[in-house]
Simulated assay, not measured.
Amino acid sequence: MNDWRIYRGVGQPHDGMRRLPAPPPWRDFAASRDGADSGPEDPSSARRLGVRRRLVENYAPRPAEVDAVNAALYLRRPLLVTGNPGTGKSTLAYAIAHELGLGKVLRWPVVSRTTLQDGLYRYDAIARLQDVQLERAGGGDRGTTASGIGSYIRLGPLGTALLPAERPRVLLIDELDKSDLDLPNDLLNTLEEGEFSVPELERLADREPVVEVLTHDGDRVAVRGGRVACTAFPVIVMTSNGERDFPAPLLRRCVQLELDPPGEEQLTAMVEAHLGADGVAAGGDLIRRFLEREPGEVLAADQLLNALFLTQYDPHAQGLTRERIAEMLMQPLDRTR
């Protein structure tokens, strides 16, 4: 490739997209989708942890991280992980699921409008009403027969994680500090008791004691008596960027872990997992820049990975181009605009 640029900004249409190389391994969604039926492991693990992760699985992890995960496992308590963006908080959930063979990670991304109900289950009463109306209008003879109530109930990620099972599921509650003030308190009872009720099914329990509903994964499971109660408490990883304080009752129910930015050993292992040993060798200057940043300056590890991946397409290693790309992609996240 004589010129790494695909878009030239000259306004002249061309077929340069055919020269676009494969995406970075951590942004290869097609590979994740293709591996969806490859076995019990989460198909997105390779994208999250690195396609070459088995080459670096024996690198020395941070002792505090290992101790906190094991404490949460033994105590059956959620793990609350706090740290700057890009320190590996969310990735920790995938690492646990991968190493312990706990299958696909259930992910619950939290935003300011998220409620406990979103995590437990949703009942689509409007769709059920529409189907009943269509059945009546069609006289019940045109394939419009309304399904049972279970077809209109879908468990959320937390509700799915609490289903009774021999082995626990891993649940990632991502960026809990983005929620409104109520959600951390609303979670308390469910996290303490490991169960919840579905009132729409409880009301029918005398007539329909067992109802099949959809899970967050899209499977069908039986709910008995309108209640879901875990037999193996899920491995819950809750992440926070430290943008707010949480109430003491929630903190009391969690094992807390503060993740520092990755050191040289962890950073090198991360780069090798995604880009191989050649990526480490070719990007030594950028890795040193990341490690030697100003005290308190916030940089995320995926910024480094992006810079390492893109600068390899400067075929002549032109210093100016390489420096410009690195400067563009490795801007401190706390820089005042």
Rank of each mutant, 00 (worst) to 15 (best):
N2D: 14
D3K: 04
R8T: 13
Q12T: 06
R19N: 12
A22F: 13
P24H: 05
D28N: 01
A31Q: 10
A36K: 05
A36D: 09
D37T: 11
G39I: 01
R47I: 08
L49C: 10
R52H: 14
R52E: 02
R53G: 00
R53P: 04
R54T: 13
P61E: 09
V69P: 02
L73I: 14
L73V: 11
Y74G: 10
R76L: 09
R76V: 05
T82R: 06
N84G: 05
G88K: 12
L92E: 00
L92C: 03
A93E: 10
I96M: 08
I96C: 09
E99Q: 15
L100M: 15
G101N: 09
V105F: 02
P109V: 11
L116E: 04
Q117Y: 06
D118C: 04
D118V: 05
L120P: 05
D124N: 11
R128V: 09
L129H: 07
Q133K: 15
E135Q: 15
E135C: 09
A137N: 15
G140N: 08
D141H: 06
S147M: 14
S147D: 13
G148E: 06
G148S: 10
Y152L: 03
G156F: 06
P157L: 11
L162R: 08
A165H: 06
P168D: 11
R169W: 07
R169N: 02
L172H: 01
E175V: 02
D177A: 01
D180H: 13
L181M: 14
L181H: 13
D182Y: 14
P184T: 00
D186V: 01
D186K: 00
L188P: 10
E192Y: 01
E192K: 03
G194A: 06
F196Y: 04
F196P: 04
R203D: 08
L204T: 06
R207P: 00
R207F: 06
V210C: 01
V210M: 04
L214M: 14
H216A: 06
H216D: 01
G218M: 10
V221I: 03
V223N: 00
G225D: 03
R227M: 07
R227E: 07
V228I: 03
V228H: 01
T231K: 13
V235M: 09
I236H: 05
V237N: 03
T239A: 13
T239V: 07
S240M: 04
S240V: 07
L250M: 05
V255F: 12
E258I: 14
L259E: 03
E264A: 11
T268D: 11
A269Y: 02
L275A: 02
D278V: 04
A282G: 10
E292S: 14
E297K: 13
D302G: 07
L305M: 15
N306D: 12
D314T: 12
A317Y: 05
Q318E: 15
Q318I: 15
T321Y: 02
T321M: 03
R324E: 11
A326Q: 08
E327N: 15
L329S: 12
L329H: 15
L333E: 09
T336F: 00
